[in-house]
Structures are given as structure tokens and as C-alpha cells.
């Protein structure tokens, strides 16, 4: 199966310099971990697992994604889709991030029909990470 140049480029960049491509994680105990929302989607048996983390801060009364990290097990398109999602997230407000649709990733990476599920996974990952962040956030406010 031939991949688009966009996918290959994104994939290879991620492999060569994972840190610059936002590969990584925040774990409990890390500074500001309470500002992090985590979304894990997919399943090993299906050949795709995407783990997305977003770090959000209050800026002028709106919640904004200031940083994001990911790790992905999956085909080249799944890895490229995760990286593309990260590029789209940074600087967006939570409300803007909620609007992200898999179609944007499909268009940018020129994903063929057989790989559209990779972009769907990315959309699910951000939705899940936001829910996790909002849950944590409301707990935090509740405890304050």
C-alpha cells in the first residue's frame, strides 16, 4: 500500500526526533499533572492504540491547550494522524478543540479510505482527553 508523502514525512520526522514531535507523557507526580487530561483509544488486538495527553491552562477566562503529548501503537497512518492532531491542538481553546473533526486530518494527510479509521481514532482521542480534563477540573474545583 503506497502512503502519501505527507504521511511518510510526518512518520519519519516523528521517528527521528520524537521529542520535537511531542512524543512523550506526563505521569502522576509530574509538575502540573492536575492540568493534564488523558485519552487512550483503540485496542492492541485491532492494531491501533493512541494515547493523547493535553495540558490546559486558564487564559483570560478561557481554557486553552498549552501543550500536548502522545504515544501511538499502530500503522504509519495512525502515527502520522496522532502527530497531525497534536499540531492542530496546540494553542486552541478547549471549545475549539472539541470542534476538531477527523475529516481535517484525512484531508491534510491525504489518507486513503482504508486508513480513515486512523483519523477517527485521533478525533476520539482528543474528545476523550477533553472529557478527562474536564472531569479532573471539576473535581479540583469541587475540592477547592
Amino acid at each position: 500500500m503506497a502512503y502519501s508523502n505527507k504521511v511518510v514525512e510526518k512518520f519519519e520526522k516523528t521517528l527521528k526526533n520524537p521529542e520535537a514531535a511531542s512524543v512523550g507523557r506526563w505521569k502522576p507526580g509530574d509538575k502540573d499533572f492536575d492540568k493534564v487530561g488523558t485519552g487512550i483509544v483503540g485496542a492492541p488486538a485491532c492494531g491501533d492504540v493512541m494515547k493523547l495527553q493535553i495540558k490546559c491552562e486558564d487564559q483570560d477566562g478561557v481554557k486553552r491547550i498549552v501543550d500536548a503529548k502522545f504515544k501511538t501503537y499502530g500503522c504509519g497512518s495512525a502515527i502520522a494522524s496522532s502527530g497531525q492532531l497534536i499540531d492542530m491542538l496546540k494553542g486552541k481553546t478547549i471549545d475549539e478543540a472539541k470542534e476538531i473533526c477527523n475529516k481535517e486530518i484525512v484531508d491534510i494527510l491525504e489518507l486513503p479510505p482504508i486508513k480513515i479509521h486512523c483519523s477517527v481514532l485521533a478525533e476520539e482521542a482528543i474528545k476523550k482527553a477533553i472529557i478527562d480534563f474536564e472531569d479532573n477540573d471539576s473535581h479540583r474545583k469541587h475540592n477547592q
Binding site: 520524537p18 512524543v23 502522545f70 501503537y73
Partner: peptide, 14 residues
């Protein structure tokens, strides 16, 4: 090299 690189970005390896 490649397996190492891919495991670095694999949540399952983590």
C-alpha cells in the same frame, strides 16, 4: 534501530 524508535513512541511498550 527501528524497533527501538517505534517502541519509544508506543504506549504499549510504556
Amino acid at each position: 534501530t527501528s524497533v527501538h524508535q517505534l517502541r519509544e513512541i508506543s504506549p504499549l511498550w510504556e
